[in-house]
C-alpha cells in the first residue's frame, strides 16, 4: 500500500509524503530547548514509528505539527499542504493518556468528536457502533466515561481518533495502560489501518510494538534526529547470518565450529550466527552431516530494543566525551 511516485507520463499527480517536517525547532520561554533540529518524512500508507528516550522531543514535535505549540522555526506539512486547522481536520489524533469529559457517555464522546469533524449524526452513530465494537467497547456506549478504567479510556481514545475515517492517524503511546490482549488488539487495529491505506505516525516507548507494526522509524535524542530508516535496514546486522538447525549432537561440526558465534541450544534446536560470506560452506557442511538438519538461514537481526539502547548509550557517551 505504499504510495509510489507516479510515472510523469501517466498524468497522475505525484503523491507527496503524508507528513513532512523540516528543521523543526522549539525554544520555550525560559530558555528550555525542547527540539533543536528535527526533520521527519512519513510516506503515505506506511506506519512510521517515532522513538526516543524521555525528553527527546517527540511530544513537542507532535504538538508543533498539530498546532498545540508554536514552533520557533521549521516547516510543517500534512498531506502535502502546510499544517493548519484545515489539514488537521483530515487526521485523527490520540494523545498520550487520553482523558474525556467524565460526565459524558462513550457515545456522547464519539458524537462530540464526530461533530467536530463535520460528520452528520446518522454517520457518527453508524461509525460509533462499528468502532466501539472494534476497540472492545461493545455495549459500553451508554456508560459514563467516569466509570472507565485507564485501559478502557485508551480504547475509547483510539475509537474517537478513527471516528472521522481520517487519512492520517497520529497515535501517542496507543498501547499505554492496556493489558496484553488490549495491546494485541491495538496492534491489529493499526495494521488494519495500514491495509486501508491510512498513514499512521506512532510515538511509543514499547519497542516490541513499534518493531511489530512499523515500516520505518525515526529515533530522536536530545531534540535531534539520531537515526532514521526502514526497520529492516536498521536492525539487520551487516555481514552476519543467523542459522537455525536441529541436531541431537552435543557439539557443532568441527569444520564450522571456529566460525560460529552466539550459540544458543535448547531441546535439540541450535541457533547460531555466522559470517555471511561463509553461508555456502556452512550449508554444505550441515547437508553432508547426517546428524544435522538445517532449518533456516537468514540475515541476522538485532531487536529494536537492543538497537535503541545501543544507539542512545553511544550518543550519551559521545556527548560526555565531547
Amino acid at each position: 500500500m505504499k504510495a509510489q511516485p507516479a510515472d510523469p507520463s501517466s498524468g497522475i499527480p505525484k503523491i507527496g509524503p503524508a507528513i513532512r517536517i523540516e528543521g523543526a525547532r522549539k525554544l520555550y520561554r525560559g530558555g528550555h530547548l525542547a527540539v533543536s533540529d528535527v526533520s521527519l518524512l512519513v510516506d503515505q500508507g506506511t506506519v512510521h514509528g517515532l522513538l526516543g528516550p524521555n525528553g527527546a522531543g517527540k511530544t513537542t514535535t507532535l504538538k508543533m505539527l498539530l498546532g498545540l505549540v508554536a514552533p520557533t522555526e521549521g516547516t510543517f506539512e500534512i498531506l502535502g499542504q502546510p499544517a493548519g486547522p484545515a489539514m488537521s481536520r483530515r487526521l485523527g489524533f490520540l494523545p498520550e493518556q487520553p482523558y474525556f469529559p467524565p460526565l459524558l457517555t462513550a457515545s456522547q464522546v464519539m458524537m462530540f468528536y464526530g461533530r467536530l469533524a463535520g460528520m452528520d449524526t446518522a454517520a457518527i452513530r453508524e461509525r460509533t457502533s462499528v468502532l466501539l465494537s472494534q476497540v472492545g467497547l461493545e455495549g459500553r456506549g451508554a456508560d459514563l466515561v467516569s466509570s472507565f478504567s485507564r485501559g478502557l479510556m485508551q480504547r475509547l481514545g483510539i475509537a474517537q481518533a478513527l471516528v472521522s475515517s481520517p487519512e492520517l492517524l497520529i497515535l501517542d503511546e496507543p498501547a499505554s495502560g492496556l493489558d496484553p490482549v488490549g495491546q494485541r488488539d491495538i496492534r491489529n487495529l493499526i495494521l488494519a489501518q495500514r491495509e486501508l491505506g491510512i498513514t499512521v505516525l506512532l510515538s511509543s516507548h514499547q519497542l516490541s510494538e513499534v518493531e511489530a507494526v512499523c515500516d520505518e522509524v525515526t529515533i530522536l535524542d536530545s531534540g535531534r534526529v539520531a537515526q532514521r530508516g526502514a526497520i529492516d535496514t536498521l536492525l539487520n546486522i551487516t555481514g552476519q547470518n543467523s542459522v537455525t538447525a536441529r541436531s541431537s549432537a552435543d557439539q557443532l561440526p568441527e569444520k564450522i565450529a571456529s566460525i560460529v558465534g552466539d550459540v544458543v541450544v535448547g531441546s535439540g534446536t541450535w541457533v547460531f550466527s555466522i559470517p555471511a560470506h561463509d553461508s555456502r560452506r556452512v550449508v554444505d557442511v550441515l547437508d553432508d552431516d547426517q546428524e544435522w538438519e538445517l532449518v533456516s538461514i537468514q540475515p541476522k537481526r538485532e531487536s529494536l530494543e537492543d538497537y535503541f539502547s545501543h544507539l542512545v548509550s553511544t550518543r550519551a557517551e559521545g556527548q560526555v566525551s565531547r
Partner: peptide
C-alpha cells in the same frame, strides 16, 4: 487533563 488536545488537534 489534556482533553483540549483532542479538540484543538482536530483543526478547531
Amino acid at each position: 487533563r489534556r482533553t483540549i488536545y483532542n479538540v484543538l488537534a482536530r483543526g478547531v
